[in-house]
Amino acid sequence: MEDPPRLVASDIDGTLLRDDRTLSPRTAAVLARINAAGTPVVLVTGRPIRWLQMVYEQLAEPLPAICANGAVVYDPVTDQVLRADPLAPELLAEVARRLRAEVPEVSFAVEIVDSRQMRHEAHYPLRWDADLDAIRAVESPEELLAAPAVKLLARAGEQDPDVFVRVVAGALEGLAEATHSSYSGLIEISAAGVTKAAGLAWYAERLGIDERDVLAFGDMPNDVPMLAWAGRAVAVANAHPAVREIAHEVTGPNTEDGVAAYLEKVFGVD
Rank of each mutant, 00 (worst) to 15 (best):
Trp128Asn: 12
His120Cys: 10
Val138Ala: 07
Ala176Met: 00
Val150Ser: 00
Phe164Tyr: 07
Phe108Thr: 06
Val168Thr: 01
Gln117Leu: 11
Leu132Ser: 14
Pro125Asp: 10
Asp162Gly: 06
Leu175Asn: 03
Pro125Trp: 10
Ile135Ser: 09
Gly174Leu: 03
His123Pro: 03
Pro141Asn: 08
Ala134Trp: 07
Leu172Trp: 05
Val163Asp: 13
Asp129Asn: 12
Glu121Thr: 05
Arg136Val: 11
Glu158Pro: 00
Ala176Pro: 04
Glu177Met: 03
Leu132Ala: 14
Leu145Pro: 05
Arg166Lys: 10
Ala169Val: 01
Glu111Cys: 13
Arg100Asp: 13
Glu111Gln: 12
Glu142Arg: 11
Val138Gln: 03
Glu142Gln: 11
Glu143Gln: 13
Gly157His: 04
Gln159Ala: 02
Ala101Gly: 09
Ala171Leu: 02
Ala122Ser: 13
Asp129His: 14
Arg136Ile: 04
Val110Phe: 09
Phe164Glu: 02
Asp129Cys: 11
Ala169Glu: 05
Glu142Met: 02
Met118Ile: 15
Val110Gly: 08
Val168Ile: 14
Glu139His: 13
Leu144Arg: 08
Ser140Met: 06
Arg127Leu: 14
Ile135Glu: 14
Glu143Ala: 12
Ala122His: 13
Ala109Ser: 11
Arg119Met: 10
His120Phe: 15
Arg119Gln: 12
Asp129Gly: 13
Arg127His: 15
Glu143Leu: 06
Gln159Lys: 03
Glu173His: 08
Arg136Asn: 04
Asp114Arg: 12
Phe108Leu: 12
Ser140Leu: 08
Phe164Ile: 05
Ala147Met: 14
Phe108Pro: 09
Asp133Met: 08
Arg116Ile: 11
Ala149Lys: 02
Pro148Ser: 07
Ala134Cys: 09
Pro104Lys: 09
Arg136Cys: 06
Val103Leu: 09
Arg127Asp: 14
Leu145Phe: 15
Ala122Asn: 10
Glu143Ile: 07
Arg100Thr: 15
Glu143Lys: 04
Val110Glu: 06
Val106Ile: 13
